[in-house]
Nucleic acid binder design. Sequence first.
DNA 1: TCGTGGGCCACAATTACATCA
DNA 2: GCTGATGTAATTGTGGCCCAC
Length: 349
Amino acid sequence: MGLGINNSNGKQEQEEREKASGKGEEESEETLKRSRRNGDDHQRLSIDPPLQLDLLPRSPVPRNTTHQGVSWPSDNGSSEGGSSGQMGLAAAARGFDVNRMPPVTAEEEEEAEDGAAAESSPNSVAAPFQMDFCIYRGAGNGGGNKRVFDGSAAGDDGGEAERASSRASDDDENGLARKKLRLSKEQSAYLEESFKEHNTLNPKQKLALAKQLNLRPRQVEVWFQNRRARTKLKQTEVDCEYLKRCCETLTEENRRLHKELQELRALKTSNPFYMQLPATTLTMCPSCERVATTTTTTTPSSSAAAATTNSTDPSSKATTPFPISRPRFYPFSQPQPQSQPPHQSSAAS
DNA sequence: TCGTGGGCCACAATTACATCA
DNA sequence: GCTGATGTAATTGTGGCCCAC
């Protein structure tokens, strides 16, 4: 615990390196398979979310792209990818990993290129937009544990640049602290856009995104994981609120039905002649407040019980004099056809 | 055909850092 | 400048699925 982020994903990064180092057809085959699986997962995940949340920010990112091999448009709209002017910095052109300390010695440089080049693909041509690079030094990288920020990449994100550079100033001397990258606004926005299109990534997409954003694939993957978790959390909150309202409504309805039942019982005792009639239940449709009449052989109490219990269960529609007009809780996104309550009096026939 | 181990992935829970009030 | 709250990047552990053997 508490190690630098670079050394933590050794195995996965190794795998990613292997993949990135080009297994060509093999990889694409595997990718396809996984994509299929991902598709399944995606289906599983995207089961008609209850109340649709719009958690996505109004992204400033122009959307003239799709994400497979997208060209990330620059902020000024020109997407002449990868010009040195857009990258704005030699470091970026060399494809610094955002968490990696720029190599100092020749050996380190070589080592860094072996690693970072393969894993996070130093988009020498990709990432045609300016991005601030908070470059950390992994614990295993040796040499000072400094975090370097290249302020020249700030662009209109100068505030972040400032913060980052000030962050860089208060160095931690021990290499044990887990350093945390804050994604730039552009990176976040682009990831959001991608998430909007698909909330899971297949390896190809992951790599492409990582390349474009100058992040490690692992970071992209983690971001998507966390994003899914956030979405789910928000959705749960919304669901909770909705259920609370449902509960309140049902409680109120239950109270009302109990009251009605008592009134009917009182009527029954005060008017014995009433007993000669076929058992009839008067029930108020909760949605339209109209009375539906049903002839039944059950006692008033049992019918009332049915009326109070069936409200939550759409499947019990058949036993109720009116369909449940409340939108079904799950799935939420499908608008329920507002079926007309059958106000036919099937009773007394 | 069935069982098993490995690889990969997603997820939940948690940690730890950065930022802000 | 300190502190608690909050947001979120990153880690860890687990389970499911697929595939090769």
